[in-house]
Amino acid sequence: MHIVVCIKQVPDSAQIRVHPVTNTIMRQGVPTIINPYDLFSLEAALAIRDEHGGTVTVLSMGPPMAADSLRRALSIGADRAVLLTDRFFAGSDTLATSYALATAITKIASDQPVDMVFCGKQTIDGDTAQVGPGIARRLGFHQLTYVESVETIDRARRTVIVRRRAEGGVQVLRSELPCMVTMLEGSAVVRRGSMADALRAARADVTTWSAKDAGIEDISQCGLRGSPTVVRKVFAPQPRKEKAVLIEASAHDPVHMAEATIDTLFAALPGLNAELHAAAAR
């Protein structure tokens, strides 16, 4: 099995502050981490590798310092790391990002065919959840999103069965390989790096590719030029003026709860009683 896991280096949202005037994220001095959702996908990929054998390649697009996150992924147990870094990538939205990553995955697959691509469900800084599906579409892979567990992989038939959390229940889906999977948070306990892995990661080379190295021919699809998304305005919503009202009622008596709610409504809207009577009369 050859599995590519896409990760993103993001500011640690637990330590982030928003500029009070410009409403932009203040990134200076904020430590970076691997997007936490990506870790669940990395764990799922490592577990598949441990069971079936093979290689886990971690891939990231970002500034040169994103190599730290790739190294961190190596110290958790990934086998090799590729960083896409180039000034042409600056300002990429999800369309441009999925183009660059999909092209790089194609390049990676030219050395060793890729069976599965894992992405985080979404990132904690962009929150769009679009890059994974974008990659799947561009590569022509089936996409399995919001997966809570990878149940079985049949390597002979080249199929995978996953459990996918869907509205109102769980879907059990079978897909052909290759496919793209995004894992749900909490789907596994992310493993902890061993000392041996930490030592290996400290020495491992992170392969660094420019746009050209990654096989990207159409630069106009990258970075700001390839990004149709326009942010018109960023604002912090004003706190709403209305206040919540606490209704006291017996927790074990539904009739009392209903009555207390209705009494509160009628007390808050003095004209309501008359309106209802008028409506009934019509």
Partner: peptide
């Protein structure tokens, strides 16, 4: 550098 990486972990 290996030692420093191990200490981080």
């Amino acid at each position: 550098d290996d030692v420093l990486a191990a200490l981080e972990e």
